[in-house]
Design a protein around this nucleic acid. Structure first.
Lengths: 205, 205
DNA sequence: TGGTTTCGAAACCGACAGGTCTCGATGTTA
DNA sequence: TAACATCGAGACCTGTCGGTTTCGAAACCA
């Protein structure tokens, strides 16, 4: 799944010398994500990561060969997007969508989106990173919505002529746009307005 | 409307010496936009702009004090977004939305979005540029859709409980997301699927 | 104990970008 | 003609960033 040539540099087992401090790994990954969320790929300088993690650049390059590799690993280990993996069947489309909308805290949504924003620049010219970001951050949520829509379709709650792939993109699209472009707050009311809209869309004749 | 301190450096009138060549202005702006669309703010180096415009960096800095100012001016003069200003009243919501969707060529949409993408990095920490971009690129289209929705409402084509501001953001949001994140082509079929969805959303009970 | 590796810190290297300055040539004004 | 500003081109300055190397101290293994 993961390109071995572009991933973390492993610590060879059974060799002499001092062992790597595992806490450095965690601190670096954490600092990387914080800086990416705060200021994007450009603001995330290796110097800043090292300082924030309380280590030196050498310690980072000993584990990750390049900045790109570090970013990929950080995204993979961010855990963002994990909350979307389970979708309990509530029995109605509204119930499922409400659950999905509520599955993430507002803070998590903001972090995920800002992380995505910070990576947009690099994503443009790095297909590998794009794939990683898509799989780790975006696809889980779209998949959850798709599942909800499929269930609604099976229950006959939804018109067959509606393209479920397009409809599944509505909520992520509007979140993305609101957080990055119009920059208005993501409120409960706003989210439920969208859920209502999606339901109407699903039931169109 | 435009911050004087951050705008183009005017040519003082009635002075001795050679006059500025107006064609330089056009060539620089054009080169700026091309490079922004192609590779974003980072790839748009002043060196590259000068070369592409067939001039020197001095000629650019004589007119625009900084890179930021040049970008702001280029966006303002890009003309993108102008196609959305007029919305003929077709008599139906579907007619109006179809007209808006068709008012821009696919190429113009792609350019506008890629320009926006390239500016996202700078927009984040430059409120002035953000305002300019919003007004020049985004607001015209949202306003056009809002107008169409208002007409539909006045005609009784639309439920009063629907938030028209949210609904007006659906199309721009999905365009933005599709072009930048999922990176699938913007087809006629896809656009009409969305128009149908918006209509159902508008008429929800 | 001796050899090896990691630690954090800092010096260092090479590339590159924004911005300034200089150059000789060309227009423009008085 | 004299003074001056713009032209395109390129040298130049300065800061920054990714990445490498060095350093003494600490930790691990045989």
């Amino acid at each position: 799944m993961q390109d071995p040539g572009a991933s973390r540099i492993a610590e060879p087992p059974g060799r002499p010398g001092r062992r790597r401090d595992p806490s450095v790994d965690d601190r670096v990954i954490e600092a990387t994500l914080e800086l990416l969320v705060a200021g994007g790929f450009e603001a995330m300088t290796m110097e800043a990561v090292a300082t924030r993690a309380g280590t030196g650049k050498a310690g980072i390059y000993r584990r990750w060969g390049t900045k790109q590799v570090l970013v990929v690993d950080a995204v993979l280990r961010s855990g963002l997007g994990a909350s979307d993996s389970v979708v309990p069947d509530s029995g109605t489309l509204r119930g499922d969508l409400t659950a999905i909308v509520g599955s993430e805290t507002a803070k998590a949504t903001r972090q995920k989106t800002r992380l995505l924003e910070g990576l947009l620049v690099v994503i443009r010219e790095d297909p590998q990173l794009r794939a990683v970001v898509t799989n780790a951050l975006i696809e889980p949520r779209v998949a959850a919505i798709r599942t909800a829509l499929d269930r609604a379709h099976d229950r006959g709650e939804m018109s067959s002529s509606v393209d479920r792939e397009t409809l599944a993109a509505v909520l992520p699209s509007m979140l993305f746009y609101r957080l990055l472009v119009s920059r208005e707050p993501v409120t409960r009311v706003w989210q439920h307005e969208i859920v209502d809209g999606i339901i109407a869309w699903a039931q169109r004749r």
